[in-house]
Design a protein around this nucleic acid. Structure first.
Lengths: 337, 337
DNA sequence: ATAGGTTGTCGAAGCGCTTCGATACCTATT
DNA sequence: AATAGGTATCGAAGCGCTTCGACAACCTAT
């Protein structure tokens, strides 16, 4: 283990000089800087993280709390996590992975121990139990997701209300009057996950405005659950000509079932998905969809947090505008017989 | 920020006593222990991570390097990552998330800075460029995956060779003579990812032993790519009656295509998948499959690493035995006309 | 020639913890 | 009664770094 002192000695300067070369917090002559940098290279010096953290009371670590449950949006979570990690690195931060398991205690632990300088919380619920703690410890943080009360918080999320509205609009514009919404698993709604409720909100209010009849049904993923859900929907509203899906693992089963029943997409039924682009483009029908900008969310979250840590940046809610990409799963509503 | 010294003063003991209460490295009278613990609780004390790391030269952090690419096995990666994080916590460790992006440099940085006490590498390639470094720095580490040269390394992986063999056996036992293998994306093979090559190895050698004709074709995920691949396979080997898929995102497209072509599963074609159980059970046909024991791998990796860090544990290769679960996608081969 | 500013470097004081003797007391042994 | 061995506690030394104040050495403007 090479230490700062050894580098200093090797370069013939004092330890503090080396430190200032490293941090750039005081001006150093070009000559000295080069000598020091050379010594660093020759000795293979790496600053010791613990010592640094102790002396500067900054760990250069960002904590990322991801949900323990993997019942939804796994690839999206992963994409966000990776975006967070890579963006953080470009700002000189590393990422500590916390699972939801510990719950609020993790916030206490991380804030208390100075393990991380700030944290990013994913999968925030409308009334999340971690929020009071977050406010109390004034731990710099950014949420991915939107709780019901955002005072004193910085949040980044897709504008799901606008997303819902956008989906309905697209179908309405093509003449669809009866639209079914296939949602996330019931548990997601019971848990009051913000994005699910806000999507529904957007869907409903826009539908009301446009005179579209909307039928919302939660749905566990998978083929069997989808079969039951679809049957019920068509039973209740036989004239359904548009379907909006917000559940990755229901997408392909839905398409398979429609095909099996002889309902052509988009001739008989139009389908709009709210899902990652990858799912939309790889499905058996290229789906018209609103994509989940996972990377962008991760990047934004880190950048806001870094700004906060630098003393810049303020509490703020950033809602990313949804974009609907038209592919081949939507078309004009069939004329009623 | 409450410090050790403040706790000591509050409890009327010396700082070292508090430290020993916390670490249990020396015996402390029940009386003193209780007083100290009470003070800790009352003051809401949390040991400072940096100071601890500096003094003890242990960070209680495990680094987890996950691949940057998300072109395959995303849910599996996520499941492993979560298993690693939760298991690590039960041993008092936190997990630092490193993406493949930095490549070998990350190993150098983490090892050099003492940021982490040990590391777990995922997605290890047969001839991984991180391995020489790992050996050189004698950083305690565990690989998830199996490189070609494992000397001096600890590895955990599913026994993919046995997995391949098992799939062929299952089909052969049911009388299938012509079996097609739909593999990962070509890039995965070009990159010499261990698991893909070893699966192929197991498939081929067992097929040879059992006199089964095997045709292997890599396949990008998605419906379109699958359509092309399947057409080629059936063109080249019209008598194909068994299909083995090792590519999550090809599973559902494959089933859809077979259905569309009027080939019943399992009456006309038997399908065996190598994929997470969730995929196998949620597909439109409940798939006979060999599951990827993601959780178990994550758990194992952490436990080996923790053992190493504690001075116990040795270099060792652990191959988890595959388990084939028969569901409804396989049956006897159809009799030839 | 001198006061006032810069610029570049150093020394020393910690940051909050762990850990290694040293010490003091108590019980068991001879 | 003297000694050995435990048990419980303390004090002090450092872990490797950052950062602040001090101070030369130099430059510029009077």
């Amino acid at each position: 283990m090479v230490t700062l002192a050894e580098v200093a000695q090797h370069a013939g300067v004092s330890a503090s000089t080396v430190s200032y070369v490293l941090s750039g917090k005081r001006s150093i002559s070009a000559n000295t800087r080069q000598r020091v940098e050379r010594s660093i290279r020759e000795l293979g010096y790496h600053p010791n993280a613990g010592a640094r953290a102790l002396a500067s009371s900054r760990s250069n670590i960002i904590a990322l709390m991801i949900p323990l449950r993997t019942d939804m949006y796994v690839p999206v979570m992963m994409e966000i996590a990776i975006a967070v990690a890579t963006t953080a690195r470009t700002h000189g931060y590393d990422v500590l992975l916390l699972t939801g398991e510990e719950g609020p205690d993790a916030v206490r632990r991380v804030a208390g121990s100075g393990l991380a300088d700030g944290m990013i919380l994913m999968d925030v619920e409308l009334d999340d139990e971690r929020l009071p703690l977050l406010r109390a410890t004034d731990q710099p943080s950014v949420l991915i997701g939107l709780p019901s009360d955002t005072t004193g918080l910085t949040c980044v999320d897709l504008d799901f209300r606008a997303t819902g509205a956008l989906c309905v609009e697209h179908l309405a514009k093509q003449g669809h009057q009866d639209v079914a919404v296939i949602g996330e698993a019931p548990a997601v709604y019971e848990r009051h996950t913000g994005f699910a409720e806000r999507t529904l909100d957007g869907l409903r209010s826009r539908a009301r405005e446009l005179g579209v009849r909307l039928l919302h049904r939660p749905c566990e993923g998978g083929y069997d659950a989808m079969a039951v859900t679809l049957a019920r929907i068509l039973d209740e509203r036989p004239d359904t000509s548009g379907i909006i899906v917000q559940n990755e693992s229901a997408v392909e089963p839905l398409l398979a079932l429609l095909r099996q029943q002889g309902r052509a997409v988009p001739e008989d039924v139009s389908v709009v998905a709210i899902c990652p682009d990858q799912v939309a483009t790889q499905a058996s029908v290229r789906l018209t969809s609103v994509s989940l900008p996972a990377q962008e969310m991760g990047r934004h979250a880190v950048e806001h947090l870094v700004a906060k840590l630098a003393g810049r940046g303020s509490d703020e809610v950033v809602l990313l505008a949804p974009e609907l990409t038209v592919r081949s799963s939507t078309g004009p509503a069939p004329s009623r017989p």
